Amino acid sequence: MATGEQADIVVVGGINTDFLVQGPRLPGPGDNVRGHLFLESLGGKGADGAVGAARLGARVALVGRVGMDPRGLALLEQLEGEGVDIGAVARDPSALTGVVLEMVDEAGRKQTLASPGANLCMRVADVMQAEERISAASVLLVDLEVPMDVVSAAVHHARAAGTRVVLDPAPAMSLPEDLLEAVHVIRPNAEEAEALTGVEVRDRGSARQAAENLLRRGVGGVVVASPDGSLVLTSEGELWLPDLSVERADTTGAGDAFCAALAVALTEGKSLAQAARFAHEASALATMRLGALGGLPTREQVESRLALLGPAGLSAEASPL
């Protein structure tokens, strides 16, 4: 979309360069493992969410911060090439663009080490400059790779403006109650759900306990990713989405793909149950290729898979949602 055009979705979050190496196994302390594949790409939850939503057909604007280094400028070019409005992405003259180092084994398991760089230099003023974009959007998608005061400012402004708030609570941490109360939909994985609620998420039952905790604290709807599926819970009912059977190459970016697809479906007027089904498929597709950016699916890919699977392929039971 063109810079300045009204966005369906505004994303506030991290922007990084991802460096990924795949090898036969993950190294332990002191190990030296020879890898056989290297990828360098655009990354960060904010950037992944923006690109993921754009590939699914939404008009997307990104609010974030990169350095003035060559990596940062290259990332901005990539974002524009994906159709993302970067008019609200600040260029920091004194901080380096964020970096993520990822190691992936042949089973798709990963280890990550990050240096947030310019992401942690974001200021509330960056959100204030994007107020009109946020107010005009249908959905705000926000993550925790930027300072908490920035997250809070974006969420509360969106809520006051009538823009729906979808929170990807990563990286894992506890959150203030007033922030949770302003969130329409939150999508934690097992580690993030435990950090938020104290509940160790191991299966559907414990995922329900964590989701109920978040509902009691004011969140409108919850999608908890457990080790064997995703649980959707609102005051109207529950939906269980078992893990889909796909050939996984890398789980990096699966959660980002889920949140992007969820935001897109909600923008299009779908219910949370419908949106979660759509996002569940997008997330599974994202694990089939290496790297977060490379795995983000297109609209055609998601809809083709949904058509093949049908409703019975996505859920083990009917949903009251």
Rank of each mutant, 00 (worst) to 15 (best):
192 E>H: 06
192 E>L: 05
192 E>Y: 11
192 E>M: 08
193 A>Q: 00
193 A>N: 00
194 E>G: 02
194 E>A: 13
195 A>I: 02
195 A>G: 05
195 A>D: 03
196 L>P: 06
196 L>R: 01
197 T>K: 13
197 T>C: 09
197 T>E: 08
197 T>S: 11
198 G>K: 10
198 G>L: 08
198 G>M: 03
198 G>N: 12
198 G>D: 09
198 G>H: 10
199 V>R: 03
199 V>H: 06
199 V>E: 03
199 V>L: 03
199 V>F: 04
200 E>Y: 03
200 E>I: 04
200 E>W: 01
200 E>D: 12
200 E>R: 07
201 V>I: 09
202 R>C: 10
202 R>M: 06
202 R>P: 05
203 D>L: 06
203 D>A: 10
203 D>Q: 05
203 D>Y: 07
204 R>A: 13
204 R>E: 13
205 G>H: 12
205 G>I: 02
205 G>D: 15
205 G>R: 06
206 S>H: 01
206 S>Y: 00
206 S>I: 00
206 S>F: 00
207 A>I: 13
207 A>V: 15
207 A>N: 12
207 A>R: 09
207 A>Q: 14
207 A>C: 14
208 R>E: 04
208 R>L: 04
208 R>C: 02
208 R>H: 01
208 R>P: 01
208 R>K: 04
209 Q>W: 04
209 Q>N: 10
209 Q>T: 12
209 Q>H: 10
210 A>Y: 01
210 A>S: 01
210 A>C: 07
210 A>V: 04
211 A>G: 01
211 A>D: 00
212 E>F: 00
212 E>K: 02
212 E>Q: 10
213 N>W: 06
213 N>H: 13
213 N>L: 10
213 N>T: 14
214 L>Q: 09
214 L>S: 07
214 L>A: 09
214 L>I: 08
214 L>E: 03
215 L>Q: 13
215 L>G: 13
216 R>Q: 13
216 R>C: 09
216 R>Y: 04
217 R>D: 02
217 R>A: 09
217 R>S: 11
217 R>C: 06
217 R>I: 07
218 G>I: 08
218 G>A: 12
218 G>D: 12
218 G>N: 15
219 V>F: 03
219 V>E: 02
219 V>W: 00
220 G>I: 11
220 G>M: 08
221 G>V: 14
221 G>S: 15
221 G>A: 15
221 G>D: 07
221 G>E: 08
221 G>N: 11
222 V>N: 11
223 V>H: 08
223 V>Y: 11
223 V>I: 15
223 V>C: 13
223 V>Q: 14
224 V>K: 01
224 V>F: 05
225 A>S: 15
225 A>C: 12
225 A>D: 15
225 A>G: 13
225 A>I: 07
226 S>Q: 12
226 S>V: 15
